[in-house]
Design a protein around this nucleic acid. Structure first.
Lengths: 288, 288
DNA sequence: CGCAGTATAGAATATTTTTTCCAAGATTTT
DNA sequence: AAAATCTTGGAAAAAATATTCTATACTGCG
Protein backbone atom coordinates (compact mmCIF):
# COMPACT_ATOMS: atom_id res chain seq x y z
CA UNK A 1 0.00 0.00 0.00
CA UNK A 2 1.88 3.03 -1.23
CA UNK A 3 0.87 5.83 1.07
CA UNK A 4 1.68 9.43 0.40
CA UNK A 5 4.86 9.93 2.35
CA UNK A 6 4.63 12.81 4.82
CA UNK A 7 6.97 15.52 3.66
CA UNK A 8 7.81 17.23 6.89
CA UNK A 9 8.62 16.02 10.32
CA UNK A 10 5.48 17.29 11.94
CA UNK A 11 3.31 15.43 9.47
CA UNK A 12 5.27 12.27 9.93
CA UNK A 13 4.98 12.42 13.67
CA UNK A 14 1.25 12.78 13.42
CA UNK A 15 1.05 9.88 11.06
CA UNK A 16 3.08 7.72 13.41
CA UNK A 17 0.86 8.64 16.32
CA UNK A 18 -2.24 7.83 14.34
CA UNK A 19 -1.07 4.46 13.14
CA UNK A 20 0.79 3.45 16.26
CA UNK A 21 -1.78 1.01 17.58
CA UNK A 22 -1.99 -0.91 14.38
CA UNK A 23 1.75 -1.54 14.16
CA UNK A 24 3.41 -4.81 14.95
CA UNK A 25 5.44 -5.08 18.17
CA UNK A 26 8.83 -4.48 16.60
CA UNK A 27 7.53 -1.56 14.61
CA UNK A 28 6.07 -0.07 17.75
CA UNK A 29 9.49 -0.29 19.29
CA UNK A 30 10.93 1.60 16.37
CA UNK A 31 8.12 4.12 16.47
CA UNK A 32 8.63 5.09 20.05
CA UNK A 33 12.36 5.32 19.69
CA UNK A 34 12.00 7.59 16.71
CA UNK A 35 9.51 9.82 18.44
CA UNK A 36 11.74 10.16 21.47
CA UNK A 37 15.09 10.56 19.74
CA UNK A 38 14.63 12.42 16.51
CA UNK A 39 18.18 13.70 16.62
CA UNK A 40 19.58 10.23 16.80
CA UNK A 41 17.60 9.31 13.75
CA UNK A 42 18.95 12.31 11.92
CA UNK A 43 22.57 11.73 12.79
CA UNK A 44 23.31 8.07 13.37
CA UNK A 45 23.52 5.19 10.98
CA UNK A 46 20.84 2.60 10.65
CA UNK A 47 22.80 -0.03 12.50
CA UNK A 48 23.37 2.24 15.48
CA UNK A 49 19.77 3.30 15.62
CA UNK A 50 18.60 -0.26 15.27
CA UNK A 51 20.83 -1.56 17.98
CA UNK A 52 19.71 1.25 20.28
CA UNK A 53 16.14 0.23 19.99
CA UNK A 54 16.91 -3.46 20.00
CA UNK A 55 15.96 -4.25 16.47
CA UNK A 56 17.53 -5.28 13.19
CA UNK A 57 18.47 -2.64 10.62
CA UNK A 58 16.06 -4.16 8.19
CA UNK A 59 13.23 -3.52 10.60
CA UNK A 60 13.77 0.19 10.30
CA UNK A 61 13.68 -0.04 6.56
CA UNK A 62 10.40 -1.85 6.82
CA UNK A 63 9.15 0.80 9.18
CA UNK A 64 9.96 3.51 6.69
CA UNK A 65 8.22 1.64 3.94
CA UNK A 66 5.06 1.30 5.98
CA UNK A 67 4.87 5.07 5.97
CA UNK A 68 5.36 5.30 2.26
CA UNK A 69 9.05 6.05 1.89
CA UNK A 70 11.26 4.17 -0.49
CA UNK A 71 13.69 3.37 2.27
CA UNK A 72 15.03 4.42 5.61
CA UNK A 73 17.38 7.02 4.12
CA UNK A 74 14.43 8.65 2.50
CA UNK A 75 12.83 9.06 5.88
CA UNK A 76 16.02 10.21 7.52
CA UNK A 77 16.13 13.15 5.18
CA UNK A 78 13.14 14.60 6.97
CA UNK A 79 14.92 14.51 10.27
CA UNK A 80 17.99 16.09 8.80
CA UNK A 81 16.07 18.85 7.09
CA UNK A 82 14.41 19.61 10.35
CA UNK A 83 17.74 20.31 11.96
CA UNK A 84 18.94 22.22 8.95
CA UNK A 85 15.98 24.52 8.94
CA UNK A 86 15.13 24.90 12.60
CA UNK A 87 18.40 24.92 14.36
CA UNK A 88 20.24 28.11 15.27
CA UNK A 89 22.80 28.63 12.61
CA UNK A 90 22.14 27.17 9.24
CA UNK A 91 18.66 28.28 8.49
CA UNK A 92 20.23 31.22 6.81
CA UNK A 93 21.93 29.61 3.87
CA UNK A 94 19.03 27.27 3.40
CA UNK A 95 16.49 30.06 3.32
CA UNK A 96 18.62 32.14 1.05
CA UNK A 97 18.93 29.20 -1.28
CA UNK A 98 15.18 28.89 -1.44
CA UNK A 99 14.64 32.59 -1.85
CA UNK A 100 17.16 32.69 -4.64
CA UNK A 101 15.39 29.98 -6.45
CA UNK A 102 12.10 31.77 -6.27
CA UNK A 103 13.42 35.10 -7.37
CA UNK A 104 15.31 33.62 -10.28
CA UNK A 105 12.06 33.49 -12.11
CA UNK A 106 11.41 37.19 -11.93
CA UNK A 107 12.59 39.93 -14.17
CA UNK A 108 15.76 40.80 -12.42
CA UNK A 109 16.35 44.12 -13.95
CA UNK A 110 13.26 46.04 -12.98
CA UNK A 111 14.14 48.39 -10.14
CA UNK A 112 11.04 47.57 -8.17
CA UNK A 113 12.04 43.96 -8.18
CA UNK A 114 15.50 44.84 -7.06
CA UNK A 115 14.00 46.74 -4.19
CA UNK A 116 11.74 43.88 -3.38
CA UNK A 117 14.56 41.41 -3.35
CA UNK A 118 16.71 43.62 -1.26
CA UNK A 119 14.04 44.21 1.30
CA UNK A 120 13.30 40.53 1.43
CA UNK A 121 16.92 39.48 1.78
CA UNK A 122 17.54 42.05 4.43
CA UNK A 123 14.56 40.83 6.35
CA UNK A 124 15.89 37.32 6.28
CA UNK A 125 19.27 38.54 7.39
CA UNK A 126 17.74 40.41 10.31
CA UNK A 127 15.72 37.45 11.42
CA UNK A 128 18.84 35.38 11.29
CA UNK A 129 20.80 37.95 13.21
CA UNK A 130 18.32 37.91 16.01
CA UNK A 131 18.77 34.21 16.40
CA UNK A 132 22.49 33.85 16.27
CA UNK A 133 23.80 36.72 18.33
CA UNK A 134 24.66 35.57 21.79
CA UNK A 135 23.38 37.79 24.56
CA UNK A 136 26.55 37.39 26.56
CA UNK A 137 28.55 38.84 23.70
CA UNK A 138 26.36 41.91 23.78
CA UNK A 139 26.65 42.23 27.51
CA UNK A 140 30.37 41.82 27.44
CA UNK A 141 30.70 44.40 24.71
CA UNK A 142 28.69 46.89 26.68
CA UNK A 143 30.96 46.37 29.66
CA UNK A 144 34.05 46.82 27.54
CA UNK A 145 32.61 49.98 26.10
CA UNK A 146 31.80 51.24 29.53
CA UNK A 147 35.28 50.67 30.85
CA UNK A 148 36.96 52.27 27.91
CA UNK A 149 38.28 55.75 28.10
CA UNK A 150 37.94 56.20 24.37
CA UNK A 151 36.40 53.98 21.75
CA UNK A 152 38.23 53.83 18.46
CA UNK A 153 36.35 52.81 15.36
CA UNK A 154 38.02 51.14 12.44
CA UNK A 155 36.41 50.29 9.14
CA UNK A 156 37.10 51.13 5.55
CA UNK A 157 35.43 50.58 2.20
CA UNK A 158 32.20 48.71 2.65
CA UNK A 159 32.59 48.68 6.41
CA UNK A 160 33.11 52.39 6.60
CA UNK A 161 29.47 53.39 6.94
CA UNK A 162 29.14 51.14 9.94
CA UNK A 163 32.20 52.53 11.64
CA UNK A 164 31.08 56.06 10.83
CA UNK A 165 27.67 55.41 12.27
CA UNK A 166 29.18 54.02 15.44
CA UNK A 167 31.47 57.00 15.85
CA UNK A 168 28.65 59.38 15.27
CA UNK A 169 26.12 57.82 17.57
CA UNK A 170 28.57 57.05 20.34
CA UNK A 171 29.60 60.62 20.55
CA UNK A 172 25.95 61.47 20.83
CA UNK A 173 25.51 59.40 23.89
CA UNK A 174 28.52 61.26 25.21
CA UNK A 175 31.07 58.57 24.88
CA UNK A 176 34.46 59.59 23.58
CA UNK A 177 34.62 58.00 20.18
CA UNK A 178 37.18 58.44 17.50
CA UNK A 179 36.88 57.30 13.93
CA UNK A 180 40.12 56.04 12.45
CA UNK A 181 39.21 57.31 9.05
CA UNK A 182 42.59 57.34 7.47
CA UNK A 183 42.13 60.82 6.07
CA UNK A 184 45.47 61.72 4.58
CA UNK A 185 46.50 58.09 4.95
CA UNK A 186 47.17 58.47 8.61
CA UNK A 187 45.52 55.38 9.92
CA UNK A 188 48.63 54.00 11.53
CA UNK A 189 49.54 57.34 13.03
CA UNK A 190 46.06 57.60 14.42
CA UNK A 191 46.06 54.17 15.97
CA UNK A 192 49.37 54.84 17.59
CA UNK A 193 47.95 56.39 20.65
CA UNK A 194 45.51 53.78 21.71
CA UNK A 195 46.32 52.36 25.08
CA UNK A 196 45.14 49.63 27.42
CA UNK A 197 42.32 51.79 28.71
CA UNK A 198 40.84 52.24 25.28
CA UNK A 199 39.03 49.79 23.08
CA UNK A 200 38.72 49.32 19.38
CA UNK A 201 35.62 48.31 17.50
CA UNK A 202 36.79 47.03 14.15
CA UNK A 203 34.46 46.33 11.25
CA UNK A 204 35.67 44.37 8.29
CA UNK A 205 34.28 42.01 5.71
CA UNK A 206 35.78 39.74 3.14
CA UNK A 207 38.11 40.53 1.48
CA UNK A 208 39.56 42.03 4.57
CA UNK A 209 41.23 45.38 4.32
CA UNK A 210 44.81 45.55 5.43
CA UNK A 211 44.28 48.85 7.17
CA UNK A 212 41.69 47.48 9.48
CA UNK A 213 43.70 44.38 10.23
CA UNK A 214 46.64 46.58 11.08
CA UNK A 215 44.57 48.53 13.54
CA UNK A 216 43.44 45.30 15.15
CA UNK A 217 47.03 44.20 15.52
CA UNK A 218 48.00 47.48 16.99
CA UNK A 219 45.20 47.21 19.50
CA UNK A 220 46.43 43.79 20.45
CA UNK A 221 49.99 45.05 20.79
CA UNK A 222 48.99 47.98 22.94
CA UNK A 223 46.79 45.91 25.18
CA UNK A 224 43.54 47.45 24.07
CA UNK A 225 40.56 45.08 23.91
CA UNK A 226 39.02 44.54 20.50
CA UNK A 227 35.43 44.07 19.48
CA UNK A 228 35.11 42.69 15.98
CA UNK A 229 32.16 42.98 13.64
CA UNK A 230 32.95 40.68 10.79
CA UNK A 231 31.61 37.93 8.62
CA UNK A 232 33.73 35.13 9.96
CA UNK A 233 35.71 34.19 12.97
CA UNK A 234 38.54 33.48 10.59
CA UNK A 235 38.94 37.06 9.56
CA UNK A 236 42.17 38.77 10.55
CA UNK A 237 40.37 41.10 12.90
CA UNK A 238 38.36 38.39 14.58
CA UNK A 239 41.32 36.31 15.50
CA UNK A 240 42.45 38.25 18.52
CA UNK A 241 39.17 39.89 19.33
CA UNK A 242 37.79 39.91 22.81
CA UNK A 243 34.32 39.66 21.37
CA UNK A 244 33.43 38.81 17.80
CA UNK A 245 30.08 39.32 16.19
CA UNK A 246 29.82 37.06 13.22
CA UNK A 247 27.38 38.80 10.93
CA UNK A 248 25.82 37.32 7.84
CA UNK A 249 24.59 40.18 5.79
CA UNK A 250 22.26 39.76 2.88
CA UNK A 251 23.75 39.28 -0.53
CA UNK A 252 21.83 40.00 -3.68
CA UNK A 253 23.55 39.19 -6.92
CA UNK A 254 27.08 39.87 -5.72
CA UNK A 255 26.08 42.91 -3.74
CA UNK A 256 26.37 42.66 -0.03
CA UNK A 257 24.14 44.60 2.22
CA UNK A 258 24.99 46.26 5.50
CA UNK A 259 21.67 45.96 7.22
CA UNK A 260 22.56 43.37 9.78
CA UNK A 261 25.85 45.05 10.61
CA UNK A 262 24.15 48.37 11.08
CA UNK A 263 21.61 46.71 13.29
CA UNK A 264 24.20 45.23 15.58
CA UNK A 265 25.97 48.57 15.70
CA UNK A 266 22.81 50.31 16.77
CA UNK A 267 22.13 47.69 19.34
CA UNK A 268 25.53 48.15 20.90
CA UNK A 269 25.18 51.89 21.16
CA UNK A 270 21.71 51.85 22.55
CA UNK A 271 22.40 49.09 25.01
CA UNK A 272 25.34 51.04 26.22
CA UNK A 273 23.33 54.20 26.45
CA UNK A 274 20.65 52.52 28.49
CA UNK A 275 23.02 51.08 30.95
CA UNK A 276 25.60 53.77 31.32
CA UNK A 277 24.81 56.64 29.05
CA UNK A 278 23.36 60.01 29.60
CA UNK A 279 19.68 59.81 30.24
CA UNK A 280 18.64 62.87 28.36
CA UNK A 281 17.22 61.84 25.07
CA UNK A 282 20.20 60.77 23.06
CA UNK A 283 18.83 60.16 19.66
CA UNK A 284 20.61 59.24 16.53
CA UNK A 285 20.51 62.77 15.22
CA UNK A 286 21.90 65.60 17.20
CA UNK A 287 20.17 68.74 17.96
CA UNK A 288 22.19 71.42 16.31
CA UNK B 1 52.95 15.07 11.91
CA UNK B 2 50.42 13.59 14.25
CA UNK B 3 48.71 16.44 15.99
CA UNK B 4 46.48 16.01 18.94
CA UNK B 5 43.01 16.06 17.43
CA UNK B 6 40.72 18.55 19.16
CA UNK B 7 37.99 16.63 20.88
CA UNK B 8 35.20 19.14 20.95
CA UNK B 9 33.86 21.56 18.44
CA UNK B 10 34.93 24.65 20.27
CA UNK B 11 38.50 23.44 20.44
CA UNK B 12 38.48 22.55 16.79
CA UNK B 13 37.16 25.93 15.82
CA UNK B 14 39.88 27.60 17.77
CA UNK B 15 42.47 25.40 16.19
CA UNK B 16 41.15 26.22 12.75
CA UNK B 17 41.23 29.89 13.55
CA UNK B 18 44.76 29.66 14.82
CA UNK B 19 46.11 27.73 11.87
CA UNK B 20 44.02 29.38 9.22
CA UNK B 21 46.74 31.57 7.83
CA UNK B 22 49.11 28.71 7.30
CA UNK B 23 46.66 26.65 5.27
CA UNK B 24 46.78 26.27 1.53
CA UNK B 25 44.13 28.04 -0.55
CA UNK B 26 41.86 25.05 -0.98
CA UNK B 27 42.09 24.20 2.66
CA UNK B 28 41.21 27.76 3.55
CA UNK B 29 38.13 27.38 1.42
CA UNK B 30 37.17 24.32 3.37
CA UNK B 31 37.96 26.04 6.65
CA UNK B 32 35.65 28.94 6.05
CA UNK B 33 32.86 26.78 4.81
CA UNK B 34 33.12 24.60 7.85
CA UNK B 35 33.18 27.53 10.20
CA UNK B 36 30.17 29.06 8.53
CA UNK B 37 28.06 25.97 8.06
CA UNK B 38 28.69 23.58 10.90
CA UNK B 39 25.35 21.93 10.52
CA UNK B 40 25.96 21.14 6.91
CA UNK B 41 29.11 19.41 7.93
CA UNK B 42 27.26 17.43 10.54
CA UNK B 43 24.47 16.29 8.29
CA UNK B 44 25.54 16.10 4.70
CA UNK B 45 27.79 13.69 2.93
CA UNK B 46 31.30 14.55 1.92
CA UNK B 47 30.44 14.95 -1.69
CA UNK B 48 27.66 17.41 -0.96
CA UNK B 49 29.82 19.42 1.40
CA UNK B 50 32.68 19.41 -1.01
CA UNK B 51 30.61 20.53 -3.94
CA UNK B 52 29.13 23.32 -1.85
CA UNK B 53 32.50 24.72 -1.08
CA UNK B 54 33.86 23.98 -4.51
CA UNK B 55 36.48 21.37 -3.80
CA UNK B 56 36.97 17.65 -4.20
CA UNK B 57 35.86 15.26 -1.50
CA UNK B 58 39.41 14.21 -0.98
CA UNK B 59 40.31 17.75 -0.05
CA UNK B 60 38.08 17.54 2.95
CA UNK B 61 39.70 14.34 4.03
CA UNK B 62 43.06 16.03 3.76
CA UNK B 63 41.73 18.93 5.75
CA UNK B 64 40.64 16.63 8.53
CA UNK B 65 44.01 14.95 8.56
CA UNK B 66 45.82 18.25 8.89
CA UNK B 67 44.01 18.69 12.17
CA UNK B 68 44.96 15.27 13.39
CA UNK B 69 41.94 13.17 12.61
CA UNK B 70 42.15 9.86 10.89
CA UNK B 71 39.65 10.95 8.29
CA UNK B 72 36.77 13.22 7.53
CA UNK B 73 34.24 11.01 9.26
CA UNK B 74 36.30 11.23 12.39
CA UNK B 75 35.99 14.99 12.28
CA UNK B 76 32.34 14.89 11.41
CA UNK B 77 31.69 13.09 14.63
CA UNK B 78 32.47 16.29 16.50
CA UNK B 79 29.88 18.22 14.60
CA UNK B 80 27.30 15.54 15.15
CA UNK B 81 28.02 15.31 18.84
CA UNK B 82 27.53 19.02 19.07
CA UNK B 83 24.00 18.71 17.78
CA UNK B 84 23.30 15.69 19.92
CA UNK B 85 24.44 17.43 23.05
CA UNK B 86 22.60 20.63 22.30
CA UNK B 87 19.29 21.05 24.01
CA UNK B 88 16.72 18.45 23.06
CA UNK B 89 15.73 20.37 19.96
CA UNK B 90 13.30 23.02 21.07
CA UNK B 91 11.53 23.99 17.92
CA UNK B 92 11.75 27.47 16.59
CA UNK B 93 8.28 28.54 17.55
CA UNK B 94 8.92 27.15 20.98
CA UNK B 95 12.02 29.23 21.37
CA UNK B 96 10.23 32.33 20.24
CA UNK B 97 7.59 31.70 22.82
CA UNK B 98 10.20 31.25 25.49
CA UNK B 99 11.91 34.38 24.40
CA UNK B 100 8.73 36.38 24.55
CA UNK B 101 7.99 35.12 27.97
CA UNK B 102 11.46 35.74 29.23
CA UNK B 103 11.63 39.21 27.85
CA UNK B 104 8.33 40.12 29.39
CA UNK B 105 9.79 39.40 32.74
CA UNK B 106 13.14 40.92 32.12
CA UNK B 107 13.93 44.51 31.90
CA UNK B 108 13.63 46.16 28.55
CA UNK B 109 17.15 47.28 28.75
CA UNK B 110 18.87 43.96 28.39
CA UNK B 111 20.95 44.04 25.24
CA UNK B 112 19.34 40.98 23.73
CA UNK B 113 15.97 42.63 24.02
CA UNK B 114 17.26 45.75 22.41
CA UNK B 115 18.57 43.67 19.55
CA UNK B 116 15.30 41.88 19.23
CA UNK B 117 13.33 45.08 19.12
CA UNK B 118 15.66 46.58 16.63
CA UNK B 119 15.57 43.67 14.29
CA UNK B 120 11.83 43.56 14.55
CA UNK B 121 11.32 47.23 13.88
CA UNK B 122 13.74 47.22 11.01
CA UNK B 123 11.91 44.33 9.46
CA UNK B 124 8.68 46.24 9.66
CA UNK B 125 10.32 49.29 8.18
CA UNK B 126 11.59 47.25 5.27
CA UNK B 127 8.22 45.74 4.62
CA UNK B 128 6.75 49.19 4.63
CA UNK B 129 9.43 50.50 2.32
CA UNK B 130 8.66 47.85 -0.22
CA UNK B 131 5.09 49.00 -0.37
CA UNK B 132 5.42 52.73 -0.51
CA UNK B 133 8.26 53.29 -2.93
CA UNK B 134 6.96 54.05 -6.37
CA UNK B 135 8.60 52.15 -9.17
CA UNK B 136 8.60 55.16 -11.44
CA UNK B 137 10.68 57.07 -8.91
CA UNK B 138 13.24 54.35 -9.05
CA UNK B 139 13.24 54.23 -12.79
CA UNK B 140 13.55 57.96 -13.08
CA UNK B 141 16.41 58.02 -10.60
CA UNK B 142 18.26 55.41 -12.55
CA UNK B 143 17.88 57.48 -15.70
CA UNK B 144 19.14 60.57 -13.95
CA UNK B 145 22.10 58.67 -12.62
CA UNK B 146 22.83 57.32 -16.02
CA UNK B 147 22.81 60.72 -17.66
CA UNK B 148 24.97 62.31 -15.04
CA UNK B 149 28.62 62.87 -15.63
CA UNK B 150 29.36 62.78 -11.95
CA UNK B 151 27.14 61.96 -9.00
CA UNK B 152 27.68 64.05 -5.91
CA UNK B 153 26.62 62.69 -2.57
CA UNK B 154 25.59 64.89 0.29
CA UNK B 155 24.77 63.78 3.79
CA UNK B 156 26.09 64.58 7.22
CA UNK B 157 25.58 63.32 10.76
CA UNK B 158 23.10 60.51 10.79
CA UNK B 159 22.76 60.59 7.03
CA UNK B 160 26.46 60.37 6.48
CA UNK B 161 26.71 56.58 6.43
CA UNK B 162 24.14 56.43 3.67
CA UNK B 163 25.93 59.00 1.57
CA UNK B 164 29.24 57.28 2.19
CA UNK B 165 27.82 53.96 1.17
CA UNK B 166 26.43 55.45 -2.02
CA UNK B 167 29.73 57.04 -2.90
CA UNK B 168 31.58 53.86 -2.25
CA UNK B 169 29.34 51.51 -4.12
CA UNK B 170 28.78 53.80 -7.07
CA UNK B 171 32.46 54.07 -7.66
CA UNK B 172 32.56 50.30 -7.65
CA UNK B 173 30.16 50.07 -10.49
CA UNK B 174 32.41 52.51 -12.23
CA UNK B 175 30.31 55.57 -11.94
CA UNK B 176 32.06 58.76 -11.07
CA UNK B 177 30.89 59.54 -7.58
CA UNK B 178 32.06 62.18 -5.22
CA UNK B 179 31.27 62.42 -1.55
CA UNK B 180 30.82 65.95 -0.31
CA UNK B 181 32.23 65.09 3.06
CA UNK B 182 33.09 68.52 4.25
CA UNK B 183 36.52 67.55 5.42
CA UNK B 184 38.22 70.75 6.43
CA UNK B 185 34.86 72.47 6.22
CA UNK B 186 34.99 72.67 2.49
CA UNK B 187 31.54 71.56 1.64
CA UNK B 188 30.62 74.74 -0.17
CA UNK B 189 33.90 74.79 -2.03
CA UNK B 190 33.32 71.22 -3.04
CA UNK B 191 29.82 71.79 -4.31
CA UNK B 192 30.96 74.75 -6.28
CA UNK B 193 31.89 72.79 -9.31
CA UNK B 194 28.73 70.86 -9.88
CA UNK B 195 27.17 71.65 -13.19
CA UNK B 196 24.03 70.86 -15.17
CA UNK B 197 25.44 67.55 -16.33
CA UNK B 198 25.94 66.32 -12.82
CA UNK B 199 23.42 65.24 -10.25
CA UNK B 200 23.26 65.34 -6.50
CA UNK B 201 21.85 62.70 -4.24
CA UNK B 202 21.18 64.36 -0.94
CA UNK B 203 20.34 62.50 2.22
CA UNK B 204 18.96 64.30 5.20
CA UNK B 205 16.64 63.68 8.11
CA UNK B 206 15.04 65.84 10.69
CA UNK B 207 16.45 68.08 12.04
CA UNK B 208 17.82 68.92 8.67
CA UNK B 209 21.42 69.93 8.45
CA UNK B 210 22.18 73.28 6.94
CA UNK B 211 25.11 71.93 5.03
CA UNK B 212 23.05 69.47 3.12
CA UNK B 213 20.33 71.98 2.42
CA UNK B 214 22.96 74.35 1.10
CA UNK B 215 24.22 71.72 -1.29
CA UNK B 216 20.68 71.14 -2.49
CA UNK B 217 20.26 74.81 -3.15
CA UNK B 218 23.52 74.99 -4.96
CA UNK B 219 22.46 72.12 -7.14
CA UNK B 220 19.26 73.91 -7.97
CA UNK B 221 21.16 77.11 -8.76
CA UNK B 222 23.61 75.35 -11.01
CA UNK B 223 20.94 73.42 -12.84
CA UNK B 224 21.92 70.01 -11.52
CA UNK B 225 19.06 67.60 -10.86
CA UNK B 226 18.57 66.49 -7.28
CA UNK B 227 17.51 63.16 -5.85
CA UNK B 228 16.44 63.42 -2.24
CA UNK B 229 16.38 60.70 0.37
CA UNK B 230 14.59 62.18 3.28
CA UNK B 231 11.86 61.65 5.81
CA UNK B 232 9.44 64.18 4.45
CA UNK B 233 8.49 65.88 1.22
CA UNK B 234 8.60 69.12 3.14
CA UNK B 235 12.22 68.89 4.07
CA UNK B 236 14.52 71.58 2.68
CA UNK B 237 16.20 69.13 0.38
CA UNK B 238 13.01 67.58 -0.88
CA UNK B 239 11.48 70.81 -1.95
CA UNK B 240 13.33 71.26 -5.19
CA UNK B 241 14.17 67.65 -5.78
CA UNK B 242 13.57 65.99 -9.10
CA UNK B 243 12.79 62.76 -7.27
CA UNK B 244 12.17 62.37 -3.59
CA UNK B 245 12.18 59.14 -1.66
CA UNK B 246 10.23 59.61 1.49
CA UNK B 247 11.67 57.07 3.87
CA UNK B 248 10.20 56.14 7.20
CA UNK B 249 12.95 54.47 9.09
CA UNK B 250 12.35 52.46 12.19
CA UNK B 251 12.42 54.24 15.47
CA UNK B 252 13.12 52.30 18.59
CA UNK B 253 12.90 54.19 21.82
CA UNK B 254 14.06 57.49 20.47
CA UNK B 255 16.71 56.04 18.25
CA UNK B 256 16.20 56.16 14.55
CA UNK B 257 17.53 53.46 12.38
CA UNK B 258 19.03 53.71 8.91
CA UNK B 259 17.99 50.39 7.55
CA UNK B 260 15.36 51.53 5.11
CA UNK B 261 17.52 54.36 3.84
CA UNK B 262 20.42 52.03 3.29
CA UNK B 263 18.12 49.69 1.48
CA UNK B 264 16.91 52.30 -0.93
CA UNK B 265 20.48 53.39 -1.50
CA UNK B 266 21.48 49.86 -2.38
CA UNK B 267 18.54 49.50 -4.64
CA UNK B 268 19.47 52.59 -6.58
CA UNK B 269 23.02 51.48 -7.10
CA UNK B 270 22.17 47.99 -8.10
CA UNK B 271 19.36 48.98 -10.40
CA UNK B 272 21.71 51.36 -12.06
CA UNK B 273 24.39 48.74 -12.32
CA UNK B 274 22.02 46.25 -13.90
CA UNK B 275 20.84 48.63 -16.49
CA UNK B 276 23.93 50.58 -17.33
CA UNK B 277 26.78 49.45 -15.21
CA UNK B 278 29.77 47.33 -15.87
CA UNK B 279 28.91 43.71 -15.87
CA UNK B 280 32.09 42.46 -14.32
CA UNK B 281 31.34 41.56 -10.79
CA UNK B 282 31.03 44.80 -8.97
CA UNK B 283 30.68 43.72 -5.43
CA UNK B 284 30.29 45.82 -2.39
CA UNK B 285 33.88 45.37 -1.38
CA UNK B 286 36.76 45.70 -3.75
CA UNK B 287 39.45 43.17 -4.07
CA UNK B 288 42.72 44.59 -3.16
C1' DC C 1 -3.51 -29.93 16.10
C1' DG C 2 -2.23 -28.10 11.82
C1' DC C 3 -2.79 -24.56 8.32
C1' DA C 4 -2.52 -19.80 6.48
C1' DG C 5 -0.91 -15.53 6.95
C1' DT C 6 2.21 -12.28 8.87
C1' DA C 7 6.39 -10.79 11.32
C1' DT C 8 11.17 -11.25 12.23
C1' DA C 9 16.23 -12.15 12.23
C1' DG C 10 20.02 -12.54 9.92
C1' DA C 11 22.75 -13.27 5.96
C1' DA C 12 23.55 -11.78 1.20
C1' DT C 13 23.59 -8.19 -1.90
C1' DA C 14 23.54 -3.60 -3.70
C1' DT C 15 24.46 1.00 -3.07
C1' DT C 16 26.49 4.88 -1.32
C1' DT C 17 30.18 7.09 0.81
C1' DT C 18 34.79 7.57 2.30
C1' DT C 19 39.51 7.08 1.74
C1' DT C 20 43.76 6.20 -0.67
C1' DC C 21 46.79 6.91 -4.27
C1' DC C 22 49.16 8.98 -8.00
C1' DA C 23 50.11 11.97 -11.75
C1' DA C 24 49.95 16.72 -13.07
C1' DG C 25 50.32 21.43 -11.75
C1' DA C 26 51.88 25.10 -9.04
C1' DT C 27 55.10 27.25 -6.01
C1' DT C 28 59.25 27.89 -3.65
C1' DT C 29 64.07 27.19 -3.06
C1' DT C 30 68.62 26.76 -4.52
C1' DA D 1 66.57 28.24 -14.58
C1' DA D 2 66.33 23.70 -12.53
C1' DA D 3 65.20 21.00 -8.63
C1' DA D 4 62.63 20.07 -4.84
C1' DT D 5 58.51 20.52 -2.31
C1' DC D 6 53.94 21.18 -1.70
C1' DT D 7 49.18 21.32 -3.55
C1' DT D 8 45.44 19.67 -6.19
C1' DG D 9 42.02 16.97 -9.04
C1' DG D 10 40.45 12.81 -10.22
C1' DA D 11 39.92 7.95 -10.42
C1' DA D 12 40.31 3.56 -8.29
C1' DA D 13 39.92 0.90 -4.08
C1' DA D 14 38.14 0.15 0.37
C1' DA D 15 34.89 0.63 3.80
C1' DA D 16 30.67 1.54 5.60
C1' DT D 17 25.92 1.54 5.13
C1' DA D 18 21.38 0.53 3.36
C1' DT D 19 18.33 -2.66 1.26
C1' DT D 20 16.61 -7.05 -0.23
C1' DC D 21 15.79 -11.70 0.36
C1' DT D 22 14.79 -16.02 2.52
C1' DA D 23 14.22 -19.33 6.00
C1' DT D 24 12.13 -19.59 10.31
C1' DA D 25 9.13 -18.37 14.07
C1' DC D 26 5.06 -16.75 15.62
C1' DT D 27 -0.15 -15.80 15.72
C1' DG D 28 -4.78 -16.54 15.13
C1' DC D 29 -8.17 -19.59 13.50
C1' DG D 30 -10.68 -23.57 11.90
Amino acid sequence: MPKSPPSDLEALKQEITAQYESLSPRLKQVASYIMDNPNDVALETLSIISSRCGVQPSTIVRFAKVFGYTGASDMQRLFRDEILSASPSPSYSERIRQFRKRSDEMDWLAPENVLHDFAESNIIALEHLREVVRPEDLTKSVELMHNAETIYLAGVRRAFPVAAYLAYSLSHVEKRAFLLDGVAGMTSEQSWMLGPNDIVIAVSFRPYANDTAAVAERAQANGAPLIAISDSRLSPIARDAEVCFEIKDAEVRQFRSLTASMCIAQTLVISYAYKYGVDKSATGESRK
